[in-house]
Amino acid sequence: MVGARKGAARRLMTAAVVGLGLLTAAPAAMAQDVLVLAAASTKNAVEKLAGQFKAKTGVAITSSFAASSALAKQIENGAPADLFISADLDWMDYLQKRNLIKVDSRVSLLGNELVVIAPKGSTLKPDLKPGGDLPALLGDGRLATGDPSNVPVGKYAQAALESFGQWAQIEPKLARTDNVRAALALVSRGEAPLGIVYRTDAAVDPGVAVVGVFPPGSHPAIVFPVALTATTTNANAVKFLDFLKSPEGLAVFQEFGFVPAPKLP
Rank of each mutant, 00 (worst) to 15 (best):
K102A: 14
Q52G: 06
K43N: 13
L110N: 01
M13D: 10
T123H: 13
A87D: 10
S63P: 01
V2L: 10
A227E: 07
G146K: 03
F214P: 00
H219I: 02
G212T: 05
K173A: 04
K245N: 08
A16P: 06
D33L: 04
K125D: 05
P260C: 11
T62E: 15
G212C: 04
A185Y: 06
T123C: 03
A31L: 10
L186C: 05
A209W: 04
V210A: 09
P220T: 09
N44V: 13
T233N: 15
G154L: 02
A60I: 11
Q254P: 00
S188C: 09
Q32E: 14
D104R: 02
K239T: 06
G7R: 14
D140T: 08
L138F: 02
R181K: 11
G3R: 15
S149L: 11
L100V: 07
E47R: 13
P27Y: 14
R11D: 15
P148D: 01
P215S: 12
I75R: 07
V18R: 13
P220C: 09
P216N: 00
V187Q: 00
I170E: 06
A60L: 08
L109P: 04
K245L: 12
A26F: 14
S188T: 04
N44H: 11
L23K: 14
R176M: 07
A185T: 12
V204T: 15
V204N: 00
G3Y: 15
T231H: 14
G154S: 00
G3T: 09
K97F: 12
I75G: 03
R5S: 04
G141A: 04
G217H: 09
R106K: 14
H219Y: 02
V223M: 03
P152M: 00
L137Q: 07
K155S: 07
G78C: 09
V213F: 03
G131K: 08
V151D: 09
L264G: 03
N236K: 15
L124W: 00
L228A: 12
K155W: 05
R142W: 01
H219C: 00
A31R: 15
A40C: 02
L184P: 04
A15G: 07
A168D: 10
N179C: 10
K125Y: 01
A182M: 07
A29C: 08
F240D: 09
V213K: 15
I117H: 06
L49N: 10
Q96E: 15
P172Q: 02
F65A: 03
P247F: 02
I170R: 01
Q52C: 03
F240C: 10
L12H: 05
E162F: 07
P225L: 11
